[in-house]
Every structure is written in structure tokens, then in C-alpha cells.
Write a protein that binds this DNA or RNA. Structure first.
Length: 473
RNA sequence: GGACAGAUGGCCGAGCGGUUUAAGGCACCGGUCUUGAAAACCGGCAAGGGAGGAAUCCCUUCGCGAGUUCAAAUCUCGCUCUGUCCGCCA
């Protein structure tokens, strides 16, 4: 949400921003509604004041007279209030002066690139082909189980996934972040507070006819953590990180460009959230970018950074960096991270303020990806070998018992043979009245096969039969 | 899921139709006193909106939403959440 006072002061500026974003919000209509709202608001306040005075004087006659008119105006005020709010909700944030002008992601400006794109003397495989060959990524069975847009990590794939998230979470903790595990269901108010409603309406999975939806990002659960609170200035900044699954509808997304698990309905994401003073948000925006780039560099994935243009920004964004990993099989850079300074846009909606010199101000929020599974599939494509193996980056090896490479192995660990005789004897050693002690027929069945080895099926059948027999009696 | 009880400012807690513009206490902030601190005393201390150059004035908010009334923290209904007991359960 933007500051309506600012809008009233600089309506032309907001109209210009809206057109740069490709937004269709009618700002002059909003200003008209606001003026009307203000007029009625003043009127209602005055009538309420009269009403309060009459009530104090116990003036029943006069009170009755005004009551009807007041309630009519109150209804009108409520209507205008809602209209005003709905319009105001659609107005996008201010834009940083250095945001490039453009209509779509094609107009984003590359500002940095790192790493050498791998040159293979073989045709590199797509991550899903590679994953299937190695038996570490199973899309087919997931589709059978949950539909298109889902996938299983299996064996070393599951380990690689955990390793990457553990590595990133540790890195962030070491840089001052507080780690969270958050709910993945959220009320509508939380989605509104973070700026996802009403804009991303069609992206959100609703749960039945309840008020709950699956989160599309832990930004929704982490920013809402401080909803309605006034934070003491000395506590800022707050650095939060969470690793959660994220759920997105992604209607009609399938294409060559989204092959494999590039765009899916559920994916894991490690998020960076920073709640800070307004004057510091530019700094923390870059801080998050540094974290992203350090992670990419340590993982050895070539990437580039683009400055997102006006048309690709989304309503809450003031300034946004996208980081795009190099995908050899796609032969393209593709978005893996986004890092936005949302200034006070979310804070106004979620009413997160801080107290400074006894005055309450809205905080600024930064929302940035730290890691998603897209990074892991970029890693798979970049680190594949001629044999179809995957080299594991040094930083992840310690989270995988030192494993250096993923090969098509059925089992990585041998089965253990244990002696469970102590565990088996526990029941025998306990002193209690069992069914067999109580029920003659059961004892009979079991005494018949005493000393004979029988298989589990026969054994279970016997138990069922004997219980049944007993119940019939 | 069922039964009962409850929800009041940063916290505790009184009020249960009209001098409550929410008592009192704690915490916090400022002051007096003190070498300094503590204690004591004095003062301040919620959020949001509107009008105004400002001082200031007005409105809203006692979990949330509706209703009754000239008047609601207080009465009625619905919802949410918390506690206790029961049921179910990783």
C-alpha cells in the first residue's frame, strides 16, 4: 500500500509510475472517491459528536431524530471506505530512479555476469533427463501420484537437495540471519499484508472453503510474523530466513522453456527477509545480493544479474535484482533468484512499524531468494560429465559424507544385519495378562504349532482366526 | 470433534447500560532529592483517522463482526482465539 497523502500531493507522478508498470489503476477516480470519502467522513464525525452530546444529556427525543440520518451516512461512509481501499490496494509502489524502463523480462538490463559457461565435448543433458538416468529425480511417478508439476528427489538426489539447503542455511545463519520453520498455510489477511492479494489471486492454492491457502513463498509467513507490531528501533534490522515448500498454481505453464522441473506447483525455497529502517533498505538490498552471489560462486554456477525493468516489477517492488543461472542444456540464462526492495509497501499493508524518538514509522522490507531447487537443477546441468555423472561442489560434499560425485548406484549403503533378540524378548519378559492367558481357543491354536517354524502370513491368519473364534463364542 | 470457562492498554487487573473522557498496580520515560544509585515524591505514558499554520479540537477502537438502545467494555446473536476436561491422534 502506498501513502495516500503522497498520492494526493503528486498524482501525476503516480500516474506515470502506473503507466510504466503497465498498470490500469484509475488514479484520478481514486482521488475523487477519496475526496468524497473525506467529505462524508467529516460529516459523520460531526453527527457522531452531536449524538454523543445528546446521549450524555439523556436527550431521547433529539437523539432519535438524528439517529436515522446518521446511520444512513454511516452506511454511505462504509461503502466509500471499501471502494477507496480497493482502489488504493491496486496502486503500485514508487519506483527507484535507476529502474530501467521496459515492458517485459526481455527488457531487463544485465548489470553483471560471473563464471565461465562450461564447454562440453558432448551434448549436455537437460536436468530431468540426467536425473532420470541417474535415478535421482523422478518426474513420471510424481505425475502419476500428484499430477504434472511435481517431482520426487530420490537417493542421492534427495541428499543433494538437503545438502544444498543445509549449506545455504548455515551460510545465512553465520551472516546474522535467524532461521525459521514456518506454517505453510496462511490466512488471506497474511497474503494481503505481503502484497500477494489481490495481485496474485490466480497463483494461490486455496484449501477447501476455508480462509486458508498454501503459501507461495515463506515471504508470506515471515513478514506476517511481525504483522501489526511496533518494533523498537534498537531491534532493527531483523534478518529472517526460512526453508519451506512453496506452492504455486502456474496455470498453463508447460512448454519447452519449462521442461523438467523448471516450473512446478511445489518447490523448496530458502528465503531471506530483512525488516529494517527506511534509510537502510538500499544497503540490505545489496547485502542480500552479496549473499546470493557468494552462494552461486561457491557452488560454481555461472550466472548473471539483471536489473528488473518497470513492466516486469510487480506492484510491491521498488527495485529488484534478478539473478539468472546458466543452464547449458537450455543454452540460456534462466531466473533462479529475485531480490526486491519493497520499501514500506508491505509494511503499510501489514502494519509493521518501528518506534523512533517516540514516533511510529513504517519499516522497510527486503525479500530475496537465497536458494531454490532451480539452482540445484542448474548445478546438475553445469556439473554433468561425459559419463552422465554429476560432480558435487566442494562446499556440499561435507553434507554428503564426503561424496564427490553422483553415479547411477542402486544402493549407496549396505544393509545392516542386527541381532534383535533382546528386543524380541521384551514382551516375553513383561508381566501382564495377554489374550492367550485369557482365551482358551487362542492358546489352543498357538500350542498346536509350538516349536514349528511358520511364516508371517500363516501366523497373522492364525491370530485373526483365533480372535474371531473367540469373539463368536 | 464435544462440554464448560474466558478474551479489557506493553503487562497484571477493576468495571458488567449513563460522572469511565477505562479505576488501581507493574513496567517504561522525564523531573525533584542524592557524590552516584536506590527509595520516596511530582509529572508523562495506546493505536488509527479527520479538520487546522499552530496550539488544539473532533471521531473510531475494551478479541472480531452484526444487532438492541437516545446511550454498550457492560445486553443479544454469530465468528475467532485461549484455558480446562473428554474424545481422537503423528
Amino acid at each position: 500500500m502506498i501513502d495516500i497523502k503522497l498520492l494526493k500531493e503528486y498524482p501525476e507522478m503516480f500516474c506515470e509510475y502506473a503507466s510504466l508498470r503497465g498498470s490500469t489503476v484509475d488514479i484520478s477516480h481514486l482521488l475523487d472517491v477519496d475526496a468524497e470519502w473525506r467529505k462524508i467522513n467529516t460529516l459523520v464525525d460531526e453527527q457522531r459528536s452531536v449524538m454523543n452530546t445528546l446521549a450524555k444529556q439523556k436527550n431521547i427525543e433529539e437523539g432519535k431524530k438524528i439517529k436515522a440520518e446518521l446511520s444512513k451516512n454511516e452506511n454511505l461512509l462504509r461503502e466509500l471506505e471499501e471502494k477507496r481501499k480497493n482502489l488504493l490496494d491496486l496502486v503500485g509502489n514508487l519506483l527507484a530512479p535507476d529502474v530501467p524502463i521496459g515492458e517485459s523480462d526481455a527488457d531487463n538490463i544485465e548489470i553483471f555476469s560471473w563464471g565461465t559457461k562450461p564447454s562440453f565435448d558432448f551434448q549436455p543433458l537437460y536436468h530431468d533427463e540426467l536425473g532420470e538416468k541417474l535415478g535421482i529425480l523422478d518426474v513420471k511417478r510424481a505425475t502419476k501420484m500428484a499430477g504434472s508439476g511435481f517431482y520426487y528427489w530420490v537417493g542421492d538426489g534427495a541428499r543433494l537437495q538437503s545438502a544444498a539447503f543445509l549449506y545455504v542455511e548455515n551460510l545465512l545463519i553465520n551472516r546474522g540471519f535467524i532461521p525459521f520453520r514456518t506454517p505453510v498455510l496462511a490466512k488471506k489477511i497474511s497474503l494481503y499484508a505481503t502484497g500477494y492479494l489481490p495481485f496474485a489471486q490466480d497463483e494461490i492454492y486455496r484449501v477447501g472453503d476455508s480462509d486458508l491457502s498454501l503459501i507461495g513463498t515463506s515471504e508470506q509467513s515471515l513478514v506476517s510474523y511481525k504483522m501489526d507490531e511496533i518494533i523498537d528501533e534498537s531491534e532493527l534490522p531483523l534478518l529472517y530466513t526460512a526453508c519451506t515448500p512453496c506452492f504455486r498454481y502456474e496455470a498453463g505453464a508447460a512448454s519447452r522453456q519449462t521442461k523438467g522441473i523448471f516450473r512446478v506447483h511445489q518447490f523448496q525455497k530458502q528465503e531471506q527477509i530483512i525488516i529494517c529502517r527506511p534509510e537502510d533498505s538500499e544497503y540490505w538490498n545489496l547485502f542480500c545480493q552479496k549473499n546470493i552471489e557468494d552462494i552461486m560462486q561457491e557452488l560454481g554456477i555461472p550466472y548473471r544479474v539483471v536489473l528488473v525493468c518497470t513492466g516486469d516489477m510487480g506492484a510491491p517492488g521498488y527495485k529488484k535484482f534478478d539473478t539468472e543461472a546458466w543452464f547449458p542444456a537450455f543454452n540460456a540464462y534462466k531466473e533462479t533468484h529475485s531480490n526486491s526492495n519493497l520499501t514500506d509497501y508491505q509494511a503499510r499493508r501489514s502494519k509493521i512499524r518501528y518506534k523512533s524518538n517516540n514516533k511510529n514509522n513504517f519499516v522497510h522490507t527486503i525479500s530475496a531468494t537465497a536458494l531454490t531447487e532451480r539452482v540445484i537443477i542448474a548445478l546438475m546441468e553445469n556439473n554433468q560429465t561425459a559419463e552422465g555423472f554429476i560432480k558435487i561442489p566442494k562446499v556440499l560434499q561435507k553434507y554428503m559424507d564426503g561424496q564427490e560425485e553422483i553415479r547411477p548406484q542402486k544402493k549407496t549403503h549396505p544393509m545392516q544385519k542386527n541381532d534383535f533378540s533382546e528386543m524380541e524378548s521384551r514382551i516375553k519378559k513383561s508381566n501382564y495378562t495377554s489374550i492367550a492367558d485369557k482365551c482358551e481357543s487362542i492358546r489352543e491354536y498357538f500350542s498346536n504349532c509350538h516349536g514349528t517354524k511358520i511364516d508371517t502370513y500363516t501366523w497373522l491368519t492364525m491370530i485373526v482366526r483365533s480372535i474371531w473364534h473367540h469373539l463368536e463364542k
